[in-house]
Amino acid sequence: MDNNIYVQSSPHIRDDINTRLIMLDVIIALLPATIWGVLRFGMHSLLIIIITVATAIISETLFNLIVKKPNSITDLSCVVTGLILALNMPSEIPLFVPVVGAVFSIIIAKMLFGGLGQNFINPALAGRCFCHISFTALMNNFKSTMSVDVYTSATPLSLLKESKEVNLLDLVFGYIPGTIGEVSAICLLIGAIYLLVKKVIDFKIPLFCLISFVVFIMLFSNKTTNMNYIMGELFGGGLLFAVFFMATDYVTAPITPLGKILYGILIGVLTGIFRLYGKTNENLSYVILILNLFVPLIDSLTIPTAFGRERK
């Protein structure tokens, strides 16, 4: 009986959690926003989503084949990247744009750095910004053949910039122009609550980001008491999508508790600066990408003091 006995270091039991289950939870959390986007913007948006996700999967498979590494698509992280990228696309974009974006996300931003866990910037955001720079006009075109409502192409943020009122109910339920996934605050919040309840994401980054953003625009926008303005800024422009689904990306966010708070505050403040003083409106992706670069620094500065030790 002394054969076939395994001896390893403790602990001898492990939790059932794995990367795939986590990614599956993120996909589930994105489903409400995805379904709403397809319902509202039509079949072309569904096509965009399918093509983007498929491109992401194929790019990762091919890359692994070429560099002779085991295929990593089973962890589903490429599906999440593809899905987030697709949800960040305007609904009428020609299909080649998300395809280029997905290839850039997976190959350049993720796999060349060593795959999931090694990338220093959020792959989906990198892909989005790449498309945004390369195909600016297409990426900013929010005209929809499906929408017959009053706002034809003006996004809530551009309305706010011209000091017009926005219809808050439309914002919350998602009857506004915008990218496929960002339009419905309520669908995004359902997904966010799912992630928070399942403890997939930590509340610190989104909470401190939203608080610091609201405080910032209250202080500096000279529309401090205009609730319509503040709610419009909060629910418009994909802020909820960004803070709950992109800023919380594990790999590119700080790991220390204090670092998470700091990172959240920085995103909020920088978003405020860009929105109040910047020229364009849809600049959240750049904010997160810039702060991704500061994450190693934030982590190093916020190492918590160990239990029972004095602060140095």
């Binding site: 492990r14 986590i22 795959g115 190492i303």
Partner: peptide, 25 residues
Amino acid sequence: PIKNLKITNCINCGRCVSACPINLI
């Protein structure tokens, strides 16, 4: 139970940080 564990890249999820009773990273 840990014979065939497949180790993959750390995804920086922070679960170890919230688990550590000594407040380590």
